[in-house]
């Protein structure tokens, strides 16, 4: 294992990176839903955060059983909606036809839950970036030998 691999794959960094990728991608799906809030016959689309979280949990468990958890590569498996590629995550957003009340224009808009999704997603992104910043700060302290 190279030194740089030790640095980039240490601790929670790989799972934080995946969380940031997921939240960044999901943001565009939510923005798409909001932009189409008054488009006739538009049906709400989403990727399930629960599906991502369970895939992430499996990957973390797998890493723990392989290396003990503190370091090593995080092998996230592709799921039905999320494809894991070298360039990040690719989404297949699914239509949520059962969600919300169908309006006269055949649009199942539900602005409140869209706004809730938006806030939730933003919070997840903030948590992941802040944690990553803290880890980077620790690393910087170790490199500069200054607290």
């Amino acid at each position: 294992m190279t030194l740089s691999d030790h640095v980039t794959n240490s601790g929670a960094l790989p799972s934080l990176a995946r969380t940031i990728q997921f939240a960044g991608r999901r943001q565009s799906v939510i923005a798409h839903n909001i932009a189409n809030a008054s488009t006739p016959r538009f049906q709400h689309k989403d990727v399930s955060p629960a599906e991502f979280q369970s895939a992430l949990r499996e990957a973390i468990d797998d890493r723990r059983s392989r290396t003990g958890g503190g370091h090593g590569e995080l092998r996230l498996e592709s799921t039905r909606q999320i494809e894991v590629t070298d360039r990040g995550l690719q989404f297949t957003a699914e239509t949520q036809s059962g969600r919300g009340v169908l309006s006269h224009d055949q649009n199942n808009r539900d602005l409140e839950s869209l706004m809730k999704d938006l806030t939730e997603n933003q919070a997840a992104f903030r948590v992941a970036t802040e944690l990553m910043r803290t880890q980077a700060g620790t690393m910087r302290a170790a490199i500069t030998e200054r607290p």
């Binding site: 940031i20 939240a23 960044g24 943001q27 939510i30 923005a31 909001i34 932009a35 809030a37 602005l111 869209l114 706004m115 938006l118 806030t119 997603n121 933003q122 992104f125 903030r126 970036t129 802040e130 990553m132 910043r133 980077a136």
Partner: peptide, 20 residues
């Protein structure tokens, strides 16, 4: 306004990403 709110959220996420 809903679109403005989504754009604001996006902007703050970009800011956080840059702060990394």
């Amino acid at each position: 306004e809903a679109n403005v709110a989504a754009a604001e959220a996006q902007k703050s996420m970009l800011g956080q990403g840059l702060r990394l």
